[in-house]
Design a protein around this nucleic acid. Structure first.
Lengths: 121, 121
DNA sequence: CAAGGTACCATATATTGCAAGGTACCATTT
DNA sequence: AAATGGTACCTTGCAATATATGGTACCTTG
């Protein structure tokens, strides 16, 4: 079921799954189980993680949900991203990019101390 | 003092700071306060974060420490990476790269469902 | 009707970053 | 000499979140 090795550092994921879910939902409506499968293609995720997350997103009005019958099992609860959710997504994407760049700078020893000549305190 | 905006998602950092510290120490011995300054050039980090982290790394024998006098203030506690620490660093770097790639795949909609034709369950 | 896949959910736990607060050294200023 | 501010260390309590675990229920197939 899970295609990515599960030894991946759990801590790395903190905060990123919210981003991943919002990105997926910005493409199309999805139900929880489906998102676990999608995300699992790239990073390991447990089923027990997605449902509390979706609940939180709904509480924060970043998504809404509706039920839909299924032939393969019980009814599916589809989630749809809201305008607020889209804004949040954009923000998270920007933060992620900045963050990932910062980490890579540190890993590759790119010292940008000189690049910020303006004392911005 | 802190050059990176502090609105960056706190959760993103989980687990990454350990990686950053080990990478810095793999280049040269550092003391805590110094590492906060170095890391802060790229991602925000609070002083209250580094000392418990260093303590943990020491407990896990990933680093050792020694004191050294300073003209600028109280004695500095320098940290030095161990062989075990270097192994851990390599592992974390690899995990980080895999993870960051996975997230980017999701963000850029690179569907690698076809790339793993072997049903490996 | 039993088994297994699909699909949902809740609870308890562990990890870890941060804020807040504290101690102490040193140089400069008043 | 006293006050100030920067350097440098540390601890405690809190908040956020991924996971394990366990549960319910639908549907198909043997």
């Amino acid at each position: 079921m899970y295609t990515v090795n599960d030894i991946m550092n759990t801590q790395f994921k903190k905060g990123v799954l919210e981003l991943c879910v919002l990105v997926l939902l910005d493409r199309k409506d999805c139900y929880g189980y489906e998102m676990v499968e999608e995300i699992s293609r790239n990073i390991f995720i447990s089923e027990g993680t997605i449902y509390p997350l979706l609940k939180r997103l709904k509480t924060e009005s970043l998504v809404i949900s509706y039920l839909k019958e299924s032939q393969d099992g019980p009814p599916r609860k589809y989630y749809q991203i809201t305008e607020l959710g889209k804004e949040k997504k954009e923000k998270l994407v920007a933060e992620w990019n900045e963050f990932a760049m910062g980490v890579n700078n540190l890993l590759y020893n790119i010292n940008n101390a000189d690049m910020e000549g303006n004392g911005d305190e």
